[in-house]
Every structure is written in C-alpha cells, then in structure tokens.
C-alpha cells in the first residue's frame, strides 16, 4: 500500500500534465473558425472595456462617430457606383440581362485583428443576420484587398487576412494580361508574392497589381505594388514581391463585397 502511494505521488504530476495536455490538444484540434468567433464575441466586450482604460477614451469616441459617418457614405457611394457601372456597361455592350456581375457593398467594423500569427484572421461586427456569407471579399475603405469571409455566426464573421499562409487569390499586373497567384510570404504582414508570372512580363518597381475575376473578389481591386522580383526555380517564370496596398495592422473599418453570381461561378468552375 505504501509503495502504491509512493508510486502515485511520483507519477501524479506527469499524469496530470499528460491529462491536461491531451484535453487542451483535443480542444485545439477540434476548434473551428466558428468557435473562434463565438469565443471572441464573448470576450470582446471585456477586452474592449479594459482596452478603453489604456487608450485615449475621448479621442476614441470622437473618431468612432466620424468613422461611422464615413463608412455609411463609402457604402452608399460604392453601391451607387456599382449600379452606374452596371447600367452603362449594359447599354454600351448590348449584353444580355444577367451577364453583368452585380456587386453589393456593405460596411463593417473590425473588432479583433492579428498580424503576428502564421494564419491571421480578423473578426468583424456583421454576421448572418446582416446578410454576410462565407467567401465574400473584404476590402479596406479605400477598396484594397484585405481578405475574405471564412465563416459567420449570427452577429459576427471571421475573415481570413491576406497575411495568412492559407490565403491565395488571383492577381495581375495592371495594364498587362499575365496573371498569377498571390500569397503571403510569412514574415512582414505587408509583403506578399505574385508567382507564376512569365519572365517576359517585364514588371517595373511600383507597378500596381490588381485582382483577376474570381468568385470572391471583383476584378481590378488593388492588391499591392511591385517591390522586387526574382527568377523562379522553374527558370521560366518570376516570383514578384509586392508591398500590400492595405496596412492590415491598422485595419479598422472594412467593405464587404457580395458577388451575386459567386455560387454559379464556383459551381461551374469546380472540377476544372
């Protein structure tokens, strides 16, 4: 009996450690972006309250009302612009009804943001009840690519940031037809790469890189600017390093873009 108690005393700490660690790993392994949104929505008010103590409270509230007015204005202008572009294109190109891809813009506030992880996400204050859906593009208020919606709860949504190793989108150098894949390089949140561009594309430092048509992003959304490039391993293409147009670390308000035909395009293109 004494030996058993001694043995238990000796292995109690490792046993407890293994038990707690296994539980934590299981929880982590089963965690989803949805769980993340739930946890963050629950703790956000507490964190926000403490944050207010540290921050400049007066300035914050003044800026908040100003930001809100600006967000509404940008949202309204974007929608007006989208309607105008659709109308004018219909008239000038005699396109059949439904051929024009309509985009609907709405605004949201970033509640929590990260630029220091390998997979960076930000949480916005709009969710299912506001019409937000997975795969909606997220742009800065200046219309620069910032990420896309991964999942939503009723009131909140989790968005994958451009600065995430899992993020990819199509990009091309403005004014040229060559397109490639944009992805994060993993270090500085403002450095992304544009790969699979032919060597003869002849990019120039400062060239603007914009989005290609996809089921998430509207075409010609600014992604970033060419900083440098080098020959890829296959020796036929170049890998271009871009400085992102958006500074994700300072992202506060965003535009959500709903591409009305995204489902049709995704269904059609899947499997090809």
């Amino acid at each position: 009996m004494y030996k058993l108690i001694t043995l238990l005393k000796q292995i109690a700490v490792p046993l407890l450690f293994v038990l707690a660690e296994v539980l934590a790993i299981l929880h982590y392994a089963n965690s989803t972006a949805y769980n993340k949104a739930q946890i963050l929505s629950a703790t956000n008010s507490a964190v926000g309250a403490v944050s207010g103590v540290f921050g400049s409270v007066g300035d914050y509230f003044r800026l908040a009302s100003e930001n809100e007015a600006l967000r509404d204005e940008v949202e309204s202008l974007r929608n007006q612009l989208a309607d105008l572009v659709a109308d004018s294109t219909l008239v000038s190109s005699y396109s059949a009804e439904g051929e024009i891809a309509p985009y609907y813009f709405s605004s949201a506030k970033v509640l929590q943001n990260s630029v220091i992880r390998q997979r960076n996400y930000f949480i916005i204050d709009k969710g299912l009840r506001d019409g937000v859906q997975a795969n909606m593009a997220v742009l800065s208020m200046q219309g620069e690519a910032a990420g896309y919606v991964v999942t939503c709860s009723e009131k909140f949504s989790v968005c994958m940031s451009v600065a995430s190793l899992d993020f990819t989108m199509g990009g091309r150098i403005q004014g040229k037809e060559f397109f490639g894949s944009v992805g994060w390089l993993g270090g500085d949140h403002r450095r992304v790469s544009l790969t699979d561009i032919p060597r003869y594309a002849n990019p120039q430092v400062g060239d603007t890189v914009v989005s290609t048509v996809s089921f998430r992003f509207p075409p010609d959304v600014t992604i970033g600017f060419v900083e440098s490039w080098e020959e890829a391993d296959d020796q036929t293409t170049i890998d271009i390093t871009l400085r992102t147009a958006v500074d994700l670390a300072t992202l506060r308000d965003v535009l959500l873009v709903q591409y009305q035909d995204s489902e049709e395009l995704e269904n059609l293109s899947s499997g090809y």
Partner: peptide, 10 residues
C-alpha cells in the same frame, strides 16, 4: 482573451 482555442494552454 485572444480566441486561440487551446494553443496557449498547450
């Protein structure tokens, strides 16, 4: 506080 679902605990 950071919504990491167990990473910090591990």
């Amino acid at each position: 506080l950071s919504g990491m679902d167990g990473l910090y605990t591990i």
